[in-house]
């Protein structure tokens, strides 16, 4: 089975090479989507061994993931893996993400930070907000309550699930995680979660979702529904 990893990246010149080198040996191909960076992200990623697609304008992580997923399907991927470019995700977890799909037990596998493996450096506030996110996802979006990680960015999809993702998601920015969870936990797909290890640093915390972004996510999901 051909496995292609998709790594959205924006202004990640400092960290992208290490992230690419960690992921590249564990997949058949790695596509970095440079989301309109003005630094050397694309150059560094290419030099480290990735294929690079460039958005001329910054469109957000959700948009970059869709572009990368489409490119992966065009390149005949059987499994598409989404993984962050900032080195938060441990590349060793890719094997666990792939296993249920290779064993035909799932169409989609989500990496979860709340299934027993302790994340390094996750602030307490983030932990609380993510718990709240689970409640919001369940009652406002209809996402199954047994999904343990409300904002996971680590997932693997077979072709069927990846095609569904492209057909049914539109969120470009921070709300894409919730929207993808909603679309990919549809009863038409078999899904499961596996524990993953995430490592937060001062850099990644500064760049990643902030607590107050929860309100923006809710607003964007609402606009996405009515527009």
């Amino acid at each position: 089975m051909k496995v292609i990893a998709v790594m959205p990246a924006f202004q990640e010149a400092k960290r992208i090479a290490e992230a690419v080198r960690g992921v590249r040996p564990r997949v058949d191909e790695l596509v970095v989507v440079d989301d309109g960076s003005s630094d050397q992200t694309a150059k560094e990623a290419r030099a480290a061994g990735a294929f690079v697609i460039r958005h001329r304008v910054n469109r957000g992580q959700g948009a970059a993931l869709r572009t990368g997923t489409q490119a992966a399907l065009n390149r005949k991927a059987d499994i598409v893996v989404h993984i962050d470019a900032d080195g938060q995700h441990d590349p060793q977890d890719i094997a666990a993400l792939l296993q249920p799909i290779k064993g035909q037990r799932a169409d989609v596998v989500f990496g979860s930070r709340f299934l027993g493996i302790q994340s390094d450096g996750m602030p307490l506030v983030r932990r609380v907000v993510l718990r709240g996110g689970r409640v919001f996802n369940a009652y406002a979006l209809g996402i199954p309550k047994r999904v343990t990680d409300a904002q996971t960015g680590s997932r693997a999809l077979n072709r069927r699930a990846a095609t569904r993702l492209l057909e049914r998601t539109t969120q470009d920015g921070r709300a894409h995680c919730s929207e993808m969870l909603k679309v990919l936990t549809d009863p038409a797909l078999h899904w499961c979660e596996v524990p993953i290890h995430v490592r937060y640093t001062a850099d990644t915390l500064a760049k990643g979702n902030q607590t107050w972004h929860a309100a923006e996510i809710v607003w964007k999901l609402f606009l996405g529904k009515v527009s």
Binding site: I53, H55, R56, V57, A63, T67, Q70
Partner: peptide, 9 residues
Amino acid sequence: VQRDALHEF
């Protein structure tokens, strides 16, 4: 933007 990026790729 996506169409342009995929075409270029």
